[in-house]
Amino acid sequence: MNALNTTRVPPHTQSSARQNPDPAVATLLAVAFEVPDGGLDHRVDLAAVALRPAGERYTLVGSLHCVLHAGMSAALIGERCCLPLDQVRERTPVAVALTVLEGYLTAPPYLLVTHQAPALGAVIARHAGACPALNAAHLVDITVLARRLLGERCPPNLPSLAAQLGVTTAPRSTRTAMDAALTGALYAHLHRIHHGRAQANADARPTRPVSNERTGHPQISGIARAGQEVRHGQAA
């Protein structure tokens, strides 16, 4: 049975052919899928959540869960996926699922995050003509990102990584839906870690006094009111 629960991702930025992977601008699209023994051409279970940056945090703005198999009729797939028959006939389940997901991506740029980056990248490249927005999105491997930030302390799988970082999400009905939600939550958490370290490094970086070009004497770059103490270049 096909389970489909989608929320259209509302516009955030003007559409552009070139994707901007800047996390402060791009909508985060966390994707997970299950590869069955027969391969994705026979069955696909794909889940995705869309998260929008709001300062240092992310807000859920859309979700999708699509389960298709080769035994389903084109008419049934078209009805449940809201696709015309010409986009369903003679197409594999994974091709149809990517088309469904593509239909909700109306406001690039997107940052595509997954714990299955090599497999997802290969599938998207194979069907690039049917999913140009997905193909143009910047792909991030959540496990590689975690390893860069955590080093050898990085666990090998999503549940262990989430447990180590204290990241939790609401229960989901399937493993793929849970993996997609967990991937999004982990990226948001790792992004905050990176932002905090970058801010700490910036605060620790010594400031250089501004010299007067004519006298060569250091000058105060800001003016404080009388009796006000100045620390680290800011009035206390």
Rank of each mutant, 00 (worst) to 15 (best):
V88S: 04
G196V: 00
G233M: 04
T207V: 11
A47W: 05
L98G: 02
V144N: 13
P159A: 04
L165E: 02
A162S: 13
N201S: 14
E152K: 03
R172T: 09
A200R: 13
A50I: 07
T168N: 09
H115V: 03
H65T: 11
N20P: 04
T13N: 13
A122R: 15
P11W: 04
V35L: 13
V96C: 01
T106G: 14
T92A: 14
R192I: 06
L60K: 08
L186I: 02
Q234Y: 13
R197S: 10
D37H: 12
R126C: 03
V61P: 01
P10I: 03
N135C: 10
M1I: 09
M178K: 13
S173H: 13
L150M: 09
G216R: 07
R52S: 10
L165R: 03
P10V: 02
R175I: 14
T183H: 07
L149C: 00
G129F: 15
C154H: 03
P109W: 14
A235M: 12
T59H: 14
G196M: 07
Y187V: 07
E90G: 00
L111I: 01
P53M: 09
I124T: 01
A75D: 14
C81M: 05
L182G: 01
P171V: 09
Y187K: 02
V44P: 09
N212R: 05
A133M: 14
G39P: 01
M1Y: 10
H189R: 13
R126G: 06
R225V: 10
G103L: 05
L145P: 04
G55Q: 09
R197M: 11
P11M: 04
T6A: 15
L29G: 01
A75M: 14
L51R: 06
V230H: 06
D203H: 10
P10H: 13
A117V: 01
A128L: 03
V140Y: 08
R197A: 12
I124F: 03
Y104N: 10
T174S: 13
R175L: 12
D45L: 02
T215R: 02
S73H: 04
A204F: 04
L186V: 00
G184W: 00
T176Q: 13
T27M: 05
L158T: 12
L101R: 08
A75S: 12
V96Y: 05
D45T: 09
P53I: 08
L161F: 00
S73A: 00
A117C: 08
A226M: 07
G166T: 03
A236N: 11
H42D: 15
R148P: 01
E229I: 14
I193E: 11
L40T: 06
V61E: 12
C82H: 12
R8V: 10
S173G: 11
G78L: 09
V9S: 06
D86H: 11
P155C: 08
L182E: 06
C66W: 06
V9R: 04
G151K: 01
Y58S: 03
M72Q: 15
R172P: 03
R172G: 00
V94D: 09
H194G: 15
G129D: 11
T143I: 12
Q14V: 15
H195E: 09
H195G: 05
S211E: 12
D41A: 11
A75P: 02
G62R: 05
C154G: 04
N2A: 14
H194R: 10
P155L: 00
Y58V: 07
L139F: 11
A170R: 04
E102A: 03
A236M: 15
S221G: 15
V113D: 09
N2H: 13
Y104V: 05
